[in-house]
């Protein structure tokens, strides 16, 4: 209860999204669980979602953090679509955008330029991700 009360009025809400065709969601599951155990509220999108669906979920659920898991290498196509969608609904500014998965170094700068706050590759310690979220989650409330 004490953790809960400390966080009261400021529970971090996250959407963990699997977008595109890749069907590997073990990593997304692990992250969702770790976030839950860190006291976050986690909404998991399920597999094979279209960018539109992710935008719809992020807007309706009013999440602080949108974590996109992409292992297919299609990040250069999918992430811009999501960013555009969030902008359309005025949700881009106050959503912390994270990408997890396999992103080649040469693509990282481009994703950052789009507004992705951080990119977490394989092997990132869970604590690092959680700390990053706790530190950078926007104070929308």
């Amino acid at each position: 209860m004490s953790t809960q009360q400390e966080r009261e009025g400021r529970t971090i809400r996250c959407l963990i999204a699997k977008v595109g065709l890749d069907g590997h969601d073990r990593g997304a599951h692990v992250i969702a669980r770790a976030f839950r155990d860190a006291g976050f509220e986690v909404i998991y999108s399920g597999l094979h979602r279209a960018p539109d669906e992710i935008v719809q979920a992020a807007v309706q659920e009013d999440v602080d953090v949108l974590g996109i898991s992409i292992l297919s290498g299609a990040h250069n196509t999918l992430v811009p679509k999501i960013v555009d969608g969030l902008e359309e609904y005025g949700a881009f500014e106050d959503t912390l955008l994270l990408v997890g998965g396999i992103v080649p170094d040469e693509d990282r700068e481009e994703l950052r330029a789009l507004g992705v706050a951080e990119i977490f590759g394989p092997g990132t310690p869970m604590e690092e991700t959680i700390e990053f979220v706790e530190e950078h989650a926007p104070d929308n409330r």
């Binding site: 209860m1 953790t3 809960q4 966080r7 529970t11 969702a32 669980r33 976030f35 839950r36 155990d37 860190a38 006291g39 976050f40 509220e41 986690v42 909404i43 998991y44 999108s45 399920g46 279209a50 539109d52 669906e53 719809q56 979920a57 659920e61």
Partner: peptide, 20 residues
């Protein structure tokens, strides 16, 4: 969770008929 206050909210996964 009564311990951490965290939660995984999974109902949304089933909302497949109303995409977009």
């Amino acid at each position: 969770s009564p311990y951490t206050g965290g939660a995984v909210l999974g109902d949304r996964i089933r909302m497949a008929s109303n995409v977009g």
